[in-house]
Design a protein around this nucleic acid. Structure first.
Length: 871
RNA sequence: GCCGAAGUGGCGGAACUGGCAGACGCGGCGGCCUCAAAAGCCGUUGAUCGCAAGAUCAUGAGGGUUCGACUCCCUCCUUCGGCACCA
């Protein structure tokens, strides 16, 4: 059947070849095995937890996913790590809770639904179905009986309940303010959702809008959220630092400046009171509430207002650009510097923010670069009040001021500052603050960068805010018994800058629970980060109808023992969850005030140097890989790719390597199990070509010398893998340790230097150590080795302390720090013995021939270094 | 600009409190098996010099501490992440 010229191979045939190739390439029947054991785990309910049995509890939590169209191998990393931890802890005897759910409200589903002209709910549930089967295919196991879905009324009822609790405590409030607005998503955004002036979701530059909105008063918790970071011993340092920076605490002084010709006083915040004598003007933010009053009699009022309007309209991104030119205008007013009663001009400028401090600053151009640039531009006076220590005696101040090319922001000695002259500026900070407090000029205060959490969203797919507006009673919370406030289904979701819920008359028109009169419902929905800020509590009591959770159970199971997720949530989700936990703690709904004691953030998996994304076309789908290599291979490679906290580049070749290794383990077990019985005739004739014939092992297992080195290696591997898992998430090195052991087993068999009992011990341990990583093949091999399923019920292997030390150690011998020889000694050898050994070493003697030994550095069991000089 | 992390073979990465740099894997090269391939197995693989024994150089760059530095200290460069006119 030679191929004829010009005749193309029929596609059917190609398929056939491809399939045949697959079959040949397959080194073990992973597909059957994986299906078998996935069914088995579900049937036996290994992951189902009785919440009342909290002895030895271990709450292993993976950040619940947003239901998107499908998962790629990068997402998989998160679930695989979680699954490894859960399985390992089970083998260590813990009662492991590992739940899963869906962060199911949110914009992408809504946008996709608008595009497809379907309902976001349909979209969401389709995605959940897909992702759920993907998780199962990965072999990631959860207690599905606790599944939560945040867009379901039985869940968001309690999200609304949490809103009411915050409202009762005055922690949920409504105010009119300039808020972040994404013109593309047509909704407001929390401060945390603005990334470098752009929308976190769609990257559109964020603008400011003056709106009446709901906020959570997270700023009341700023101090506790900051100081309790110290409790989080096992959080990545970088996440803690990010949170600290986000909260942004500064100690300083509020100084009061009387306004000339007015009874008003302007207060400004500064961390540098030491520079107060150098304040040569004062600046207000364009949004400052007193500004209009101050300028009402000024000649160029219209000009100033025009400027203010211009600044207000600038987008946040434009205003935050570093190189944006500083602009300002004199208000015609003056204020009095309270420390020296000097009159200084009052300006308004684009470089002062209303959101931070008081929206007014004292400008010290000599010691603040921003003020310096502004003063140079508008020819405002620059007055030096701090000079570098070295220049204090020698430098003439007038000269220095004139020659100043940039602000002197560093420490130094006080000058031109009245009674404080000659002090170090650090000391002056304290002295001047004391002086101000005593004289009522100012007072010490603390500022945070953290802003209150804006939670209103003008979008459809979210939990309705449970609030009513009554003409008579004003703002009225929906009574608890009337929850949930159901999200109406028959609403066109299309965003237009106002919540689409407005269209549903049935939804909007309500009765006031207080006066029974007519009332309108709040039409905005809640930020989805509210949904995810408490889901870890709901898992404990996910089917409870009359309460969000059972306090007794939650108190027993939380804080979460291990939380695993992406670092992209370092601020948003993790900060909000900590906040809500503290609020619930303060109201005695729970007895702990930090939700997650141990946090692990895994790195991204990238492809071709970039984050996987559909638009870049570099997404690696697990489905294909699982089909050709099996889930265990995908799991093993994902864990082996590198340290899990770091980003890693995906390589298909690397995945093949993982597959080869599993094949090697598979064949190793085959050899060992086959060697247990005499081969049948047909086996004999089939196998006699192959080196691994059963006779091979049988014959050498009788008279072979006991090979302790493999036993040692086996026990050392147990120690290494256990340490790697206990001390951190060092999956990559744990796996390579097992690979080493497997390699040694092959070598031992090849050299016929092994007895069967040692080999059997080793292979059982290999399978057990691998089982958290590659559970399907491990279960199968365990069974084939005569173990009773499931391996999850086995104890994690323990090692024999006597076996982890090598029989002999190789000690490197250095001369002047350079490796010159190696000697074999017994481990416990003392210094003198070691020295003797080294001196009798031929190679070393050679090197020492022309040298005089000056010093011996002997580190027992480690190395010998001889310090020597030429004769 | 500030804060943080990281720079090690062709590649992903090892190296516990300062003690044999390059474990393990990928890729490459050579071989075995085979009619041939696939799969598998064995060997080899940092660079330079050398027939070889071996020598020299190598952990971003440059200094320093030390008997000894990937590891500690100083200066600098590069990459990534966070914050950013925060007073």
């Amino acid at each position: 059947m030679s191929s004829n010229k010009g005749v193309e191979t029929p596609p059917m045939f190609e398929e056939f070849i491809k399939e045949a190739m697959q079959r040949v390439k397959k080194t073990y029947p992973f597909d059957k095995i994986e299906r078998k054991w996935q069914k088995y785990w579900i049937k036996k309910r290994f992951f189902k937890v009785d919440i009342k049995d909290f002895r030895n509890k271990y709450y292993c939590l993976v950040m619940f996913p947003y239901p998107s169209a499908g998962l790629h191998v990068g997402h998989g990393r998160n679930y695989i790590i979680g699954d490894v931890v859960a399985r390992y802890k089970m083998m260590r005897g813990f009662n492991v809770l590992t739940p899963m759910g869906w962060d199911a409200f949110g914009l992408p589903a809504e946008n996709a639904a608008i595009k497809d002209k379907t309902h976001p709910k349909k979209h969401t549930f389709n995605n959940i179905k897909t992702m759920k089967s993907q998780l199962k295919e990965w072999g990631a196991c959860y207690d599905w009986s606790r599944e939560v879905t945040s867009c379901q009324p039985d869940y968001y009822k309690w999200t609304q309940w949490i809103f009411l609790k915050l409202f009762e405590k005055g922690l949920a409030y409504r105010k009119k303010a300039f808020v972040n607005w994404c013109p593309s998503c047509n909704t407001t955004l929390a401060n945390e959702q603005v990334i470098q002036g752009r929308c976190e979701r769609c990257d559109t530059p964020v603008t400011q809008k003056d709106l009446e909105q709901w906020f959570f008063k997270i700023t009341d918790y700023a101090e506790r959220l900051l100081s309790d970071i110290d409790k989080l011993r096992n959080w990545p340092e970088r996440v803690k630092i990010m949170q600290k920076n986000w909260i942004g605490k500064s100690l300083g002084v509020n100084i009061h400046f009387p306004v000339v010709g007015s009874d008003k006083v302007l207060t400004c915040f500064t961390t540098r009171v030491d520079t107060i004598f150098g304040a040569t003007y004062m600046v207000l933010a364009a949004e400052h509430p007193l500004l209009e009053e101050f300028i009402k009699d000024v000649k160029n009022r219209d000009e100033i207002l025009e400027f203010v309007e211009e600044v207000r309209n600038e987008s946040k991104i434009k205003r935050s650009q570093l190189d944006v030119e500083k602009k300002g205008i004199f208000t015609g007013r003056y204020v009095i510097n309270p420390v020296n009663n000097k009159k200084i001009p009052l300006w308004v400028a684009n470089y002062v923010l209303m959101e931070y401090g008081t929206g007014a600053i004292m400008a010290v151009p000599a010691h603040d670069q921003r003020d310096f640039e502004f003063a140079k531009k508008y020819r405002l006076p620059i007055k030096v009040v701090i000079v570098p220590v070295l220049e204090f005696e020698t430098f003439h101040l007038w000269k220095r001021t004139a020659s100043l090319t940039r602000a002197h922001e560093d420490d130094g000695i006080m000058v031109n500052s009245g009674q404080f002259n000659g002090l170090s500026n650090r000391k002056a900070v304290r002295r001047i603050a004391d002086f101000m407090q005593k004289n009522g000029i100012g007072h010490r205060t603390i500022q945070y960068k953290l802003r209150d959490w804006l939670i209103s969203r003008q979008r459809y797919w979210g939990a309705p805010i449970p609030i009513l507006y009554c003409n008579r009673c004003g703002i009225v919370p929906v009574p608890e018994k009337s929850l949930p406030v159901l999200l109406p289904t028959a609403v066109k979701a299309k965003p237009r800058g106002e919540s689409p819920l407005k269209d549903s008359k049935k939804f909007v028109n309500a009765t006031c629970p207080k006066c029974k009169g007519k009332a309108g419902r709040e039409i905005d929905t809640m930020d989805t980060f509210v949904d995810s800020s408490w889901y870890f509590l709901r898992y404990i009591s996910s089917r409870l109808n009359n309460k969000p959770f059972e306090k007794e159970d939650v108190d027993r199971w939380l804080p979460v023992d291990q939380y695993i997720g992406g670092v992209e949530h370092a601020i948003l989700h993790l900060l909000y969850s900590r906040f809500i936990t503290k609020v619930l703690f303060d109201s005695d709904f729970i007895s702990f005030d930090e939700p997650f004691m141990n946090l692990f953030t895994q790195g991204m998996i990238i492809k071709n140097g970039a984050k996987m994304s559909k638009s870049k076309g570099n997404v690696v789908s697990p489905d294909e890989l699982i089909k050709s290599y099996g889930a265990d291979t995908v799991r093993l490679y994902t864990l082996f790719i590198g340290p899990p906290e770091k980003d890693a580049e995906w390589s298909d070749r690397g995945a093949e390597g993982a597959y080869r290794f599993l094949g090697r383990v598979w064949r190793l077990v085959e050899r060992i199990t086959q060697s247990l019985r005499a081969p049948t005739k047909s086996e004999r004739s089939n196998l006699n070509k192959i080196a691994s014939s059963p006779e091979f092992i049988l014959s050498e297992s009788e008279g072979a010398p006991r090979n302790d080195s493999l036993r040692r290696k086996t026990h050392q591997t147990i120690k290494k893998v256990t340490d790697d898992l206990e001390k951190g998430f060092h999956f990559n090195t744990a796996i390579s340790a097992v690979m080493e052991l497997v390699n040694e087993m092959y070598i031992a068999i090849e050299k016929k230097e092994i007895t069967h009992d040692i080999l059997r011990e080793a292979i059982k341990i290999v399978v057990a150590l691998l089982s958290p990583f590659v559970p399907h093949i491990a279960e199968e091999l365990w069974q084939r080795l005569g173990g009773t399923p499931s391996i999850l019920k086995e104890n994690w292997p323990s090692f024999d302390k006597n076996l982890i030390l090598d029989e002999t150690v190789t000690i490197p011998v250095q001369i002047n720090g350079k490796l010159r020889s190696k000697i074999e000694v017994t481990p416990g050898i003392d210094k003198e013995g070691l020295k003797e050994k080294v001196l009798s070493d031929e190679k070393t003697q050679n090197y020492l021939k022309n040298l005089t030994v000056k010093r011996w550095i002997i580190i027992p069991n480690k190395l010998v270094n001889i310090v020597a000089a030429n004769k």
